[in-house]
Write a protein that binds this DNA or RNA. Structure first.
Lengths: 191, 191
DNA sequence: GTCTATATCTGGATAGAC
DNA sequence: GTCTATCCAGATATAGAC
């Protein structure tokens, strides 16, 4: 017997809402987006929307989580280049970067819903990249003395920092700088 | 004749306000700080405070500018290490980092008062560091093929990114990572 | 599950007296 | 220059009907 309630239609609706919210935020940005705005874009009332997500902040976090999922699903090729690709693609949706930047700032408060999300993201990202780097180091394509955890932490901090700046000053080439970092940083001490 | 008005007492008062605001924000953080809060800390009414700064945002930007001035005034020694010292010192005033992070996010809107401030800061910072790097490169202490503008841009993006993350996850050692970056990045291709 | 309506709140800005 | 008082806008969250 096909269950109703949270399973079935409900969970699908949630996905639809998330998709619409993602699109709206990507287009209009974080500041221009209130819950009412989002509800309208999704064809729901404010109350209707909040039925699925308890609060505005939680909805926003859910949007970021969804984005991460689709980003990771589209990952191909070796670790660092794949992440640079994500950054490159992000440049086409400044609204989402803006959302992330605001959330990152707000997440400084441990009680904020984005706090745990950010911690998870840092941990998973660093772990994943560090693992890949260790493997590369093992096969000799990276210097033996490379601190892979440190490098991974740096990569994400650099990527996030570049994105925050790019939003204000689009003259910088985020992807190029990340690649430059990668080339130079990982070959140091090798020759 | 000693002028009154904006000059003399007025300008001093402004400084006092800025100092008190700086302290308050450093202690309580950005979110917990409303104009009323600030006014109280400074011993003024809300209206009194807003007499000096037109709006909340402008006041916040003024606080950041002031912070930059005192930071730069305390700079000693060679360029990169001095900046790392600033980051190290920042770790004692998370509230200010939080303020900066929020402002950086808000500055994505070109109409926001923090927008121009951020642009200036990026430009001055990058110029200054890049100049120092060029000098070091000239004297042979840096690789000849180092892109100094790129490296300077990276440094600040990395520093800002690390600070934003550190606010959420204080387990990382910002200064150590910056030094690690500096060592490895600038010696690449040198041996 | 979804809508309407509303409660409530917070906070920034303003006007005018002193 | 500074205070008091007020206004106003915007937004979230909630209650309850359908």
């Amino acid at each position: 017997m096909a269950k109703r309630g949270p399973y079935g239609k409900g969970i699908e609706r949630r996905e639809q809402i998330l998709d619409a919210a993602l699109r709206t935020i990507a287009e209009r940005g974080y500041l221009a987006t209130s819950v009412a705005e989002l509800a309208e874009a999704v064809g729901l009332s404010q109350g209707g929307l909040l039925h699925y997500f308890g609060s505005k902040e939680e909805l926003f976090v859910a949007v970021l989580r969804r984005r991460d999922e689709t980003d990771l699903a589209g990952v191909h090729g070796p670790a660092p280049a794949a992440f640079v690709d994500i950054v490159r693609r992000n440049a086409t949706v400044p609204g989402l970067i803006e959302l992330f930047t605001h959330m990152q700032a707000a997440a400084a408060d441990p009680r904020h819903p984005a706090h745990d999300y950010m911690l998870e993201r840092y941990q998973l990202g660093t772990e994943g990249l560090s693992l890949a780097l260790r493997e590369m180091r093992r096969t000799g394509s990276l210097p033996e003395d490379l601190d892979t955890d440190g490098a991974a932490t740096m990569f994400f901090a650099l990527a996030d920092g570049l994105q925050a700046r790019w939003l204000i000053d689009p003259s910088i080439d985020m992807a190029a700088l990340l690649e430059q970092w990668w080339d130079r940083y990982t070959t140091a001490g090798q020759r």
